[in-house]
Design a protein around this nucleic acid. Sequence first.
RNA 1: CGCGGCGUGGAGCAGUCCGGUUAGCUCGCCAGGCUCAUAACCUGGAGGUCGUAGGUUCAAAUCCUACCGCCGCAACCA
Length: 528
Amino acid sequence: MAAKTTWFQTTAIDYPNSRPHIGTAFEKLGADVQARYRRMEGYDVFFLMGNDENTVKVSKRAAELGLDTQAYCDDMARQFREVWDALDISYDTFVQTSSDRHKQCCRKFIQKVYDNGYIYKGNHEGWYCPDCEEFKSDKVHGENAGNCPVHKKPLQRRSEPCYLFKLSAFADRLLAHYKENPDFIQPDSRRNEIVSLIETEGLRDINISRTGEAWGLRIPFDEEFTIYVWFDALLTYITGIGYGDNEATFRKWWPADTHFIGKDITRFHCALWPAMLWAAGEEAPKKVFGHGFVNFDGDKIGKSRAEELKKKGLEYLLEPMEIIRKFSSEAFRYYFLRECPYPSDGELSPDRFIDVYNSELANNLGNMLSREMNLVWKNYSGKLDGTADKVPEAVVTGLNLAEFVATVRGHVEGCRYNLALQAIVQDFLTPTNQYLETNAPWKLVKTDKEAAKKVLFNAVQSLRIASILLKPFIPRSAEAIYTSFNFPTPWAEVKYADATELKAQSEDLRVTAVITGDKITPLFPRIG
RNA sequence: CGCGGCGUGGAGCAGUCCGGUUAGCUCGCCAGGCUCAUAACCUGGAGGUCGUAGGUUCAAAUCCUACCGCCGCAACCA
């Protein structure tokens, strides 16, 4: 048997100086849908996530709390994973950059780049604040009349030895790479941004070392220095699959199929990262996808808005776990995937959240399951005798199932999740409700029980198809729907291809869901 | 002239790349139908000069130009 096609994807790794928020959750969700979809389609998937811990901010935060930095990082990693698990993010590995393994592997990479001649010693000159113990940008210097915005003291011009990475040497190769691989940066708007940035501003060599830090990763050839966080963070993507200590697994997965990242860090992933890899003699990743942000009232949701949200009684919006608890992880997933376009920005609105949930999950999908199951249950004791080996008829007239599935598939692969869900609801579920209305099996059953049975047999297929298509989006609910009937293919094995045609099954169609009492418990109870 | 995005009925969006059916969808509102279902479902209706002004064209929300307004980013904020 031929080896399965591999699919290696990552999300950005997060700073654990505060708990995960809606924005970081949004990123993981979009990546999760892709991972789940690829697994369904038979790919051998490896999904990497992690935390970016080797930064001064993290050690400062730990110090503020009076904690050992490592202990702090480990606890934050636990908290992050708790949220990702609650959201059913199906990652395969979670890298902590403070781990010894990651550091050792990084050092090998850095040494290699150094040996290849792409790292050299120089001087870094800039505006330094002794109290912050860090350099400030020219912009900050200019905007604050030469003072530190935090300490309100004059910034000092300072020059210190440092190591620089020859990023400038890769400008032409990067531009050529973008041109030859139009899909390397997605969506297109992000690519245009990077191309024009490099074409107009060019690339400068960057300082990749820091001095005087106790926390961080030592540069292998000069232990006095620690490495610039980005140079270490990006390496997670390869140390997590064995770079430096497991050549076989590294070769199996690299190059990455997609790095999912926020649009703000596109340049690091599209310019610095490929250059680093090339400098070490490795291939660039196949694709970088810069997703959009989630806003609230037009602005990003951050700590800075905590007070404002608290006044409105909406502080729970800052905490993904609270939203999950208040509603459910499936509702959380559905809202962001349906309402916020992954490639561009979206909006989080509590009212809209309830709106989307009620109209699409409760009233449409959930209610359809209830009514169909109930009709089969009450009128046919849960079993449609004689339907074995019968091919169901199409319910949605004018819809070519194969084309429809191809459309949804295209949206999923292009990360246009909102459009995929829109198509499923509008072009498939709503017409199924119309079909039921037109054929009124609840009325027909009184005059022609066989004809009504046929209508139900056909209509139930819509639940099968919809649940398959929805599997990457709302895995738990989709499974609940699918396993409510005795559809032949085991849930774990269904593929999008199974949704492309109406086929006969060897057994009579019957309800397999456990029904207690005489009322079916709603899958998505209305909220609000 | 730093880069980029947005402006479509009360609200939120799709459509714009590759101009062309009565400008589509969700919510809300009004009227009706149905009653199997989660007060759900279905049908119909009111409501839009598609930011403004020009231009190209037989035809423009869609292409071109200018302008107005809003918003992000600018090298450790997803």
